[in-house]
Design a protein around this nucleic acid. Structure first.
Lengths: 221, 221
DNA sequence: AAAATAATTTAGATATATCTAAAAATAAGT
DNA sequence: ACTTATTTTTAGATATATCTAAATTATTTT
């Protein structure tokens, strides 16, 4: 199955939006996600439907097919492997990699991506903690909870932060919180849902409830 | 200056064809190079001319401008740096890298390319021995001659082979001749212009005049 | 230098990806 | 259930990149 760059981006958007609800994905939601107009989405939907990567009935929203899901996962695999490369090998900060990875994910070469995977030591998650699907599209997710729901005196490893908000990523970078950081919740403040935490057994600071809700931790202890 | 992927490919083709002669580059030559039709080239030429990356008068062929040359050299820089990456880091054979590099060269990010350059140790030539332009488009070329013109008992380092012919590249790979190989011309055969050579002070073999003409060596001794 | 040949450009089509504005279908409010 | 509002689709345009066929310009041959 050969898809154009644009078709790949649509399919990826539809895959991501499918996670949010079991319902079909609406035309407007896709338009919003891709910063385009509903009319353009309608056109593309018909094309993708003809290629059997989505199911579609007029006015009923779309659902990704198994074939489409496989393709989307391979694009996501490439995106995340390139992100690991950029951060680990080229010393990018994890808040700088998204735009470049967005381009690199469309490079066509199965040899390239399997060699890259090997070169990086077969990583299982990208620098934001998102899991990297394998060649068959399988994902191994570890059990995780938002920091805000951790109780006092428990420890977790940062495994996921939203990669969509640069200002949050910059802030986390500033306080020294990264993927893999060991977080201990020392004290929870009832009044504003903030929490006193320690990062990597050294720095202690208060984290607002708003931020805590966005940090996913793998349960450690 | 922002160019589309297609515009970049046209400009690169025009740059390469400009080397061959001091004359302007003909429409047909560009069409041939890009496996397209003269009519399409005519259209694109007008576009590139409007963007001031080439000079053009109807029916008179095109000449690349200084601005165009700078852009072409940056694309070539990216192409060759990626080739080094593929061969040195991902263990590609040097006859496998062209198609992938052809895609990677269009990734837009100055940070990416300067970090990649640093990561690779600021290489001066790609795996085929072609020089890598610096950020300013400067090229440092070392003095070189085809193997066929070396006299008996002289030594040279393989610095360049045509990257356009996979069958030649595969053959060179098979006989163990690579970029950087130390070649000694032991004996020249007058009858067919072949030559007895040694590769890296070990393997000895006869090389046809046809192949010898295509191997560029830097003069060593 | 006129005729033949080759190269190049234009005119008109097609395919992709997008848009705005209008029409049609669905969902929501009373 | 009927009107209103929202969502989605269609119709018609625009821009890019391509093509074929015809017209035009340049070059070569005799």
């Amino acid at each position: 199955m050969k898809l154009s760059l644009t078709e790949e981006n649509y399919l990826k958007a539809i895959y991501h939006l499918s996670d949010d609800s079991a319902e079909g994905v609406s035309t407007n939601a896709i338009a919003e996600e891709l910063s385009t107009k509903a009319a353009s989405v309608s056109d593309m939907i018909r094309k993708l439907s003809k290629k059997k990567v989505i199911d579609y009935q007029k006015y009923k929203g779309v659902q990704i097919t198994e074939a489409g899901r496989k393709i989307a996962l391979q694009i996501i695999r490439k995106h995340r492997l390139w992100e690991v490369f950029l951060v680990e090998k080229l010393s990018f900060n994890w808040d700088e990699v998204h735009d470049v990875a967005e381009q690199l994910e469309h490079i066509k070469s199965t040899t390239l991506i399997s060699r890259l995977d090997e070169y990086l030591g077969f990583p299982t998650m990208d620098p934001h903690g998102d899991p990297i699907p394998d060649e068959n599209g399988e994902i191994k997710e570890s059990p995780q909870l938002p920091l805000s729901e951790f109780s006092e005196n428990t420890i977790g490893i940062v495994v996921k932060v939203p990669d969509s908000d640069p200002s949050l990523l910059r802030h986390l970078d500033k306080i020294g919180m990264k993927l893999g950081s060991r977080i201990r919740v020392i004290e929870k403040v009832e009044f504003d849902n903030s929490a006193l935490i320690s990062i990597d057994q050294s720095k202690e600071l208060y984290l607002s409830g708003e931020i805590a809700k966005n940090i996913m931790l793998a349960i450690k202890e």
